[in-house]
Simulated assay, not measured.
Amino acid sequence: MAKITVIGQGECDFDGQFSLLEALDENGFDMPYSCRGGNCGACLVKLVAGDVEEIQSPVYEADKGHILTCSVIPLTDITIELV
């Protein structure tokens, strides 16, 4: 089970939810999002540490070192930062 650390907000476990965004939402984190489908970029965060896997191909293209929480799952413990 991967541990998710959100800088300045806390930690939670990834328990096989559909996406990183879903895991954060279920654990009470106040995460920005709009579409949940990779089309808008509202859920963009900086991936500080760890590895993720893309589960859907987003239309919005994130800059290097950034991820869309609606479109990935953690493969390892990860640390993210809101941008």
Score class of each variant (00 low, 15 high):
residue 10 G to L: 08
residue 10 G to S: 07
residue 10 G to I: 10
residue 11 E to M: 11
residue 13 D to Q: 09
residue 14 F to L: 03
residue 15 D to Q: 15
residue 16 G to T: 04
residue 16 G to M: 06
residue 16 G to C: 07
residue 17 Q to N: 09
residue 18 F to Y: 12
residue 18 F to P: 00
residue 18 F to L: 12
residue 21 L to P: 01
residue 22 E to W: 10
residue 22 E to D: 13
residue 22 E to M: 10
residue 22 E to C: 05
residue 23 A to Q: 04
residue 24 L to E: 01
residue 24 L to F: 05
residue 24 L to P: 02
residue 25 D to M: 12
residue 25 D to K: 15
residue 26 E to A: 14
residue 26 E to R: 15
residue 27 N to R: 08
residue 27 N to S: 11
residue 28 G to N: 10
residue 29 F to E: 04
residue 30 D to V: 11
residue 30 D to M: 12
residue 31 M to H: 03
residue 31 M to P: 00
residue 32 P to W: 09
residue 32 P to G: 01
residue 33 Y to L: 06
residue 34 S to Q: 13
residue 34 S to C: 02
residue 37 G to D: 13
residue 40 C to M: 14
residue 40 C to Y: 13
residue 40 C to P: 00
residue 40 C to D: 06
residue 42 A to R: 14
residue 42 A to G: 01
residue 42 A to D: 11
residue 44 L to I: 15
residue 45 V to W: 01
residue 45 V to Y: 03
residue 46 K to N: 02
residue 46 K to Y: 04
residue 47 L to T: 09
residue 47 L to V: 05
residue 48 V to M: 03
residue 50 G to S: 09
residue 51 D to I: 13
residue 51 D to P: 06
residue 51 D to M: 13
residue 52 V to N: 03
residue 53 E to H: 08
residue 54 E to M: 15
residue 54 E to I: 15
residue 56 Q to Y: 00
residue 59 V to M: 12
residue 60 Y to D: 02
residue 60 Y to A: 08
residue 61 E to W: 07
residue 62 A to V: 07
residue 62 A to Y: 01
residue 62 A to P: 09
residue 62 A to T: 13
residue 64 K to N: 03
residue 64 K to A: 10
residue 66 H to I: 05
residue 66 H to V: 08
residue 67 I to C: 10
residue 67 I to T: 00
